[in-house]
């Protein structure tokens, strides 16, 4: 390669590497600001500020959704399978909201450790499948449960 071109190529590479390091360090330093939400473990460890508008995200705990019969108020717990945070929300929930599904709630943490949300967004994962497959999977996992239950009852 021509020496001048070699020199130019080195300069370009230096530019790119330097830039990548600078941006990498900046985003690493700002990672808590770039994160869209706090997860329940961070909230229970007191990392999230109280009475400041923040977002909390995680899975809706199975069997935790309680709807108020007279209003649109809903209470549920958001979990990351390590810790869980109670959430209170008044309003219309997105269609995808369900127990066992991911959500991101926006609101304030009160002094009792309860999260009062004014917006709840549904989060879905990258797995797509036809409804029949999902049904079959669910049946299979229930079948296994039953099988293990009956196995236990036999051994008793």
């Amino acid at each position: 390669m021509h020496p001048i071109r070699k020199k130019r190529l080195t300069i370009v590479l230096f530019l790119l590497v330097g830039l990548a390091i600078a941006v990498g360090l900046t985003t690493y330093a700002l990672r808590q600001n770039i994160n869209l939400f706090y997860d329940p473990s961070q909230i229970s460890e007191g990392e999230a500020p109280v009475d400041v508008r923040i977002r909390a995200g995680g899975m809706v705990e199975e069997g935790s959704v309680v709807r108020d019969p007279d209003s649109l108020m809903v209470e549920f717990r958001v979990t990351d399978f390590n810790a869980s945070v109670p959430v209170q929300y008044t309003g219309i929930l997105p269609d995808l909201f369900a127990e066992g599904q991911g959500v991101v709630a926006m609101g304030r943490l009160d002094n009792n450790g309860r999260f009062v949300a004014d917006q709840v967004l549904a989060k879905h994962d990258e797995n797509y499948m036809p409804p029949e497959v999902a049904d079959a999977l669910e049946k299979a996992s229930k079948g296994q449960h039953k099988a293990s239950d009956s196995a236990e009852s036999v051994s008793y």
Partner: peptide
């Protein structure tokens, strides 16, 4: 980071997380 957007469905190293007809 924690994002609302889901991770990629097509990955370079793994099988896509959807069935072939999708």
């Amino acid at each position: 980071w924690n994002t609302l957007h889901q991770p990629s469905t097509f990955k370079l190293t793994e099988k896509p997380s959807m069935p072939a007809e999708m």
